[in-house]
């Protein structure tokens, strides 16, 4: 499907030329964690220990020791954050794909409705959407005699999947629109139905272009899951705060939050590198 070789005056998004494309292209895997990453982590660690030494009082447990003591609990909270992020992403993507396809529908009413919904959820603050989901959804659903409990974490997942839905819809629409219209026209001339063109010709090409921004969105979502601490869910952020309260020591404030930050960094940074790698791999060489 590499029909883009040579020049074109069609309004397409040309691949970005990376100055160091050759350097990165060959050894992507080996450079997955660049040396700079390790340097950053090292700096981070030393900052932590300096902070620890600077405010070390005798007679009390050392900072590193105390942080270590709370590590299992906060890690379990972090795993919960990851679970929420994955579930929101799945739900948001499923809904977003429908909404994205709705935006290119031939029915004006479907198109307009999908467009409105996309714009609404894409341009609303995440925290506000989360609040709406938390406080508008009941704590249990009664459909006839069936009672479906809606625990807080489920509502949070729904709440976070709303902005994901809006963003995925735009990614899908943009990805499909980025395929030159010539492809639609040639497929039509070969008697493909609209459905066939979409699923067999356009989407297979568009998916490649959608994956990097989709992964970016996932990384952003993962970091945004700390928002659920605001609505009273026991995530890593809430547990960190709980640890601070229990210790009642102000010198732990930075080290504990810093540990949380490192956890998110260690998870999100590889995703960012992988996204970059995929972007390069899928780039069409002009």
């Amino acid at each position: 499907m590499r029909t883009l070789s040579g020049t074109t005056d069609l309004p397409v998004l040309l691949p970005r030329r990376m100055p160091s494309a050759t350097e990165w292209g060959a050894a992507d895997g080996a450079r997955f964690f660049g040396s700079r990453t390790w340097l950053f982590l090292l700096l981070a660690m030393s900052a932590l220990s300096v902070a620890a030494q600077a405010s070390d009082a005798p007679a009390r447990a050392g900072i590193v020791e105390t942080v270590w003591k709370w590590m299992p609990l906060i890690s379990s909270g972090f795993l919960f954050n990851l679970l929420v992020s994955a579930a929101s992403m799945v739900l948001g993507t499923a809904l977003g794909v429908l909404l994205g396809l709705g935006q290119i529908s031939l029915h004006p009413s479907v198109r307009k409705a999908s467009w409105t919904l996309t714009q609404f959820f894409r341009n609303a603050p995440w925290l506000v959407l989360l609040f709406f989901a938390m406080f508008l959804l009941p704590f249990e659903l009664r459909i006839g005699g069936l009672v479906i409990p809606l625990p807080a974490w489920l509502k949070a997942i729904i709440g976070l999947s709303l902005p994901v839905m809006g963003n995925v819809a735009e990614i899908v629409r943009g990805g499909i629109r980025s395929i030159p219209t010539g492809q639609w026209e040639s497929a039509e001339s070969l008697a493909f139905s609209r459905m066939q063109i979409l699923w067999q010709i356009i989407i297979p090409q568009a998916v490649k272009r959608m994956i990097p921004p989709w992964m970016n969105l996932y990384a952003i979502l993962t970091m945004a899951t700390t928002l659920i601490s605001v609505v009273g869910i026991q995530d890593a952020m809430t547990l960190t705060r709980g640890a601070l309260v229990a210790e009642a020591r102000t010198d732990l404030y930075l080290p504990l939050y810093f540990m949380l930050l490192l956890m998110f960094f260690a998870y999100c940074y590889p995703i960012a590198r992988l996204t970059l790698m995929l972007e390069r791999r899928f780039a069409v060489n002009a």
Binding site: L95, L98, L99, L101, G102, S105, L106, H107, V110, A113, S114, L117, L136, L137, P138, F139, E140, L141, R142, R194, M195
Partner: peptide, 24 residues
């Protein structure tokens, strides 16, 4: 395409139709 459209509508309707029920 029709089935996708009905799917979208159904999914959106689900959100709107969630009624608040407070347990007595």
């Amino acid at each position: 395409m029709k089935s996708i459209l009905t799917g979208i509508m159904a999914a959106l309707g689900l959100f709107a139709g969630v009624a608040t029920t407070i347990a007595q």
